[in-house]
Design a protein around this nucleic acid. Sequence first.
DNA 1: GCACTGCATCAAAAAAATCTATTCAGCATT
DNA 2: AATGCTGAATAGATTTTTTTGATGCAGTGC
Lengths: 326, 326
Amino acid sequence: MKPMNFTLKQLRYFAVAGEHQSVTKAAELLYVSQPSISSAILHLEDVTGLKLFVRHHAQGLSLTPQGVEFYRKARNLLQEAESLAQFASSLSTEITGTLKVAGFPTVTGAVLPRILKGFMDKYPSVYVDCRELHQKNLIEGIQNCDYELGITYDMELPASISFEPLVSLPPYAVVSTDHPLANRRSVSMAELAEQPLVMLDWPVSRQYFMSLFISLGLKPNCAFRTHSLSMARGMVANGLGYSLLNMPMSGDSSSDHLVALPIEEPLVPLALGVARLQDTISTPAAAAFIDDIKQYVAEFMNDNNGYSMALSVPPGNTNNRVLPTH
Amino acid sequence: MKPMNFTLKQLRYFAVAGEHQSVTKAAELLYVSQPSISSAILHLEDVTGLKLFVRHHAQGLSLTPQGVEFYRKARNLLQEAESLAQFASSLSTEITGTLKVAGFPTVTGAVLPRILKGFMDKYPSVYVDCRELHQKNLIEGIQNCDYELGITYDMELPASISFEPLVSLPPYAVVSTDHPLANRRSVSMAELAEQPLVMLDWPVSRQYFMSLFISLGLKPNCAFRTHSLSMARGMVANGLGYSLLNMPMSGDSSSDHLVALPIEEPLVPLALGVARLQDTISTPAAAAFIDDIKQYVAEFMNDNNGYSMALSVPPGNTNNRVLPTH
DNA sequence: GCACTGCATCAAAAAAATCTATTCAGCATT
DNA sequence: AATGCTGAATAGATTTTTTTGATGCAGTGC
């Protein structure tokens, strides 16, 4: 059996010839020579084994009954090919399609949903698929192209992933409103080292928090470890200890009994930003999403103008009064 | 804007590469070289403006989110192309599709429906589109390929139409059961010429009937003319005159009060048969239909073995007692 | 480091599509 | 009936596209 090879071009030539009952007319309309149409039709008749046309000498041709049936389906296929082309074109130019975003656990709780809401209102034809992943899986996910964007910290990112920083976040101490340190305007790492620490035991974050103490020659008093952010918050809220976070918690309903204290020592901050695959042009949807995030960050800075933010990572630390989450 | 030209082959290469996350694997599966797959994908990425794959050095590739969306639609298009190919293949080999048949008015009343019934039971996947046409339009319809088959008489058929005779039908005189000639076993044209004639006034038929008289040096007494077969029958049944027909009427319910009388003179009979376009191979459905007709004719001959039938047109006339309609 | 994997690139060859010119068969006119 | 006309098929040359083997190159994994 033959491999039944025909091309879309041949189908188009055939279809136009069928519509106008003329090879010559089709050739004119398609800006090709008459033999091109002729041979395309002959080829189709060859591979299908059908007699598509009856040739009327000196007066064009007519579709056979089989030709009519084949024509209908062929026209349909051409229509769908055209629609595929348009679909591809819209995917590459319009803000539409599916946008897969991976968020680090501390951003998926409050920041991402808030950005998402505005984005979805603005671009209803984009379906945003959002997942919470830890740094390792997030990096892998971006490399495997499972996610186009990652909203995360600049931690252990390989060279194959580009990172656009949005805001530099220094670590904060978080204590409950009943905590002895709760009324302080700031606190030193030396003081904190004495207190029981509720540590977020996440693969990459842990090393970062430990390094903050080690860089000052201190050793934290790790009273509790947990993989759950909400559990850590609960522990701190109930006075089991203090914790360290880099994420602003403003507007987070679960931070009712928590206070964030700036730290007196200059500590290396974490940059929160957008991670994506190196050398990959963004889809229109992703670009729009990044724009939205930037706008959100800019508004946030205006609304909290005491809060230190920088789009590039500064060497030192800065203090303010906004509650962090991570 | 680009003409967005891609081929089905390129889509297939892309799809298989996407399914196996590998250019090399796709090349093996499709029995082509690796660069062929590669260039097809690059071409698609070029014309669509999409980044379909992320290349992982030394470990294949993965579809981007856009690539996945494009893949789904591309796969669908390929599926439909395949289905078109199979459709064409089945059209050319299986007994299916639409069969358009044109029938001369005298055969569409009783003969064609009866054949049709058996055929439709036997081949339910064939849709038979049946129309009643006079010779001129029937010929034109076949030439224009509006109908694949014509069931008609061998009258004025041009060389571009092939005719396969099924049965040779001599003319009969038809009178009402109350007619003075009704009890005769046969009748001569000379006798008939005296009687009032109800003539079927059809473009080609008329000349034929007239020629029957003229060939014997007679002149008919044309009392009535009509374009309607049923009206002619009604006139004859009501004793307004006799008529001439070549078609057996057996089993025709409207022939209750009619009697067919063989004619004594040897007259040139008409051949009823299948007309179709010269040099055109029949569709399987048409071939099956012709087979059915032949079988029907053969059975008819057995059931009425006094009835003279010949698959080739004999020079002379023959007598029998079966009722004709035309 | 070093071999290996797997895609992209290059240039040459093969295949296919296209073009111009011509042939051919039937229609239409005289 | 002869002749010109129309419109599809064919032939051969040309251009374009596809394919291929060889090679390059970047990252993986030992």
